[in-house]
Amino acid sequence: MSAAAPTWDPAQYLRHAGHRARPFVDLLAQVPDLPGDHPRIADLGCGPGNVTALLAERWPGAHITGYDNSAEMLDRAHVEHEGPTPGGGRLDFAHADVRTWTPDEPYDLIVSNATLQWVPDHVERFGAWVAGLRPGGTFAFQVPGNFDAPSHRLMRDLAHRHGLTDTLRHDDAVLAPRDYLARLVDLGCTADVWETTYVHLLTGEDPVLDWVKGTGLRPVLTALADEPETRDAFLGEYREALREAYPAGPHGTPFPFRRIFAVAGKGVR
């Protein structure tokens, strides 16, 4: 079965909003101040807009546009986050496909949080995005680096057994940190690239399954939307495997999660 664009469930995604937002906060902490009082910012793959709103807290006078290709996510973002900001800026959202999006005006910051892993050959887009920055602008992104973790290996193994071989990306979904560094420096950027492994303490019943239902498992859930018996069988097997791979402790279930970060500056500030 070939991969189809996954459908997204904003409510499921936001069930772990605090843990998911932490890497974006850590990414923004390394983004330098932007020139001017009213910078132009693009957030590629904004989802339901909850982390896009953090950009308005850092740069209250900015015009910020969150781009996403999910109508469900954009509907949530429009309702909950769109509008003027207290600092005289504006937060809005628009439909766009990150695979083809190209800046149509100069930006001071182009940022992407946990999105580029969904975009095959995303490094080939870096040139156009860096070209769309003003001199002194910044391109910053964060992607998961846990495709060899039990959560993803088990998911891929089960997908293969259920005839969903082409549904999931494999461990080539993202590059190694050193390869991102090389690509960005080749574009004439100064670049800071690093990785961090978070150990999230999740609570509730089958919390790792609940987590991946909002993100990595979406292609499987989409592919099996019209096959409820197969979907339930898959989830049952996956649930048991995750319980063994991520046993609950006395305070919750530890869930290690590696992420890769990059902050690239265009020219000299």
Results as ranks from 00 to 15, higher is better:
139 F>I: 12
61 G>C: 10
75 D>P: 02
203 T>P: 04
193 V>Q: 06
70 S>H: 02
153 R>Y: 09
55 L>E: 02
34 L>C: 09
62 A>Q: 02
68 D>F: 03
87 G>Y: 00
166 D>K: 04
248 A>H: 09
199 V>Q: 13
93 F>C: 00
229 E>A: 15
240 E>P: 00
154 L>T: 06
88 G>F: 09
225 A>E: 15
132 G>I: 06
137 G>S: 09
148 D>T: 15
18 G>S: 14
223 A>S: 14
64 I>M: 04
255 F>G: 03
82 E>A: 15
192 D>M: 03
63 H>I: 02
39 P>K: 12
160 H>I: 14
72 E>H: 06
122 H>S: 08
88 G>Y: 10
234 F>N: 00
119 V>N: 06
162 H>M: 11
161 R>L: 13
31 V>M: 05
1 M>A: 11
3 A>T: 03
86 P>C: 06
36 G>L: 09
57 E>L: 15
72 E>D: 14
72 E>I: 08
81 H>A: 07
188 G>A: 10
91 L>E: 01
165 T>L: 11
103 P>N: 05
85 T>C: 07
70 S>E: 03
268 V>Q: 14
240 E>R: 14
126 F>R: 04
249 G>Y: 01
259 R>I: 09
251 H>K: 13
89 G>L: 05
89 G>P: 01
121 D>P: 00
216 G>W: 02
57 E>G: 09
53 A>F: 03
27 L>H: 01
245 A>G: 09
231 R>W: 00
119 V>S: 01
215 T>E: 12
248 A>Y: 05
227 E>N: 11
4 A>H: 13
107 Y>T: 04
79 V>Y: 06
128 A>T: 11
101 W>C: 01
232 D>V: 06
10 P>A: 09
9 D>N: 14
204 G>F: 14
159 A>S: 10
86 P>I: 06
46 C>M: 04
220 V>S: 05
167 T>C: 14
79 V>G: 03
172 D>Q: 12
181 L>M: 13
199 V>D: 13
16 H>F: 15
173 A>M: 10
127 G>V: 08
68 D>Q: 04
15 R>V: 08
141 F>L: 14
236 G>S: 15
262 A>K: 01
238 Y>P: 05
243 R>K: 14
129 W>F: 05
179 D>F: 07
122 H>N: 11
123 V>I: 14
237 E>S: 10
